[in-house]
Write a protein that binds this DNA or RNA. Sequence first.
DNA 1: GTCTATACGAAGATAGAC
DNA 2: GTCTATCTTCGTATAGAC
Lengths: 189, 189
Amino acid sequence: MPRHTDAREKMVTSAALLIREDGIAGTGFRDVVAHSGAPRGSIGHHFPGGKEELVSDAVRWAGAIATRAIARAAERGTTEDAVRTIVAIYRRSLTDTQFAAGCPVGTVAQEGHSNPALRAATKQVFDDWRAILFKSLKRDGWRAKEARRLADGAIAGIEGALMMARVDQSTTPLDHTEQILLGAVRRPG
Amino acid sequence: MPRHTDAREKMVTSAALLIREDGIAGTGFRDVVAHSGAPRGSIGHHFPGGKEELVSDAVRWAGAIATRAIARAAERGTTEDAVRTIVAIYRRSLTDTQFAAGCPVGTVAQEGHSNPALRAATKQVFDDWRAILFKSLKRDGWRAKEARRLADGAIAGIEGALMMARVDQSTTPLDHTEQILLGAVRRPG
DNA sequence: GTCTATACGAAGATAGAC
DNA sequence: GTCTATCTTCGTATAGAC
């Protein structure tokens, strides 16, 4: 079972951390090995699918962490709480890295959109997020059609705001977008 | 005046078209020369600053086109019209390319954020868009604070929706985000 | 100004020793 | 499993002929 080695897991998490800062092309196997402390010679062994396999797993790993946090927030509160949770996660990663780190999922979504395997991995994560927000919005009283719109708009807004925040080297675009989104998802009626 | 050669301009526009699909790393000088039909030997001559200069100019060129379109729409109508105009531009580029083409500015914003020159070029474009939307929102009756929020939220939403649309291979995320944004910028009171 | 040829480095993939 | 060495490809940058 080469799928659950320690070295392999370390490489996947390192890849996710590096990709959210430097992108796919900017993150070589060299960097991943150096960052993870994993043995150099085991790359081909653990990732027979090459870089595509490494990046896919990194997206799924990072996406799953965010998915769990959003789901937990949505279960305990309203959609506003879920939005606040997502934004807080990414605001934190921005400030922790002097605005170098964006969302690894969004990064791969853009840079890897022409690769079917990578596109599938990112789509799965976005679908998970959409499903959680949709369910939460319905519970808040929104109709299905409007809930679908708001879920897409919220994810799009946060991903786009992250992009702007890195360019501005400031959390302001993210803060502004959060305020707009909180106003939009507030319980209807 | 090596700044306004025909060959140079062709290379800049080709670079913008290629980058919006394949990103910075995915767009080599080879591709730009092949796509533009420009003479191979003139790269170093026209772009002494290398790829950084080519990409910066591509961002500015593509950004300026969008800026003009947005400004014109905002002058003639409300902010809703401006939003509709931006979204229409990018929806068109998605469908024209089978969802291969995103926004070249957003692509460089993500992939080139660690390069000061590229970050400056993208920031300039985003600042232009923000300024136009801010002015338009003020004219629609919004207070300055709210206008600033909405301008950031609109740009973030559209850029993020473009990313999602490419992953989904569908304009739906963009359509949904547009509807949310149109509701948000609607004249207050 | 334009071109060809090439230098130089970095990347991913691979083969074979231990 | 791990490692080293190498192959091949591809990128940018540059030098020098026309």
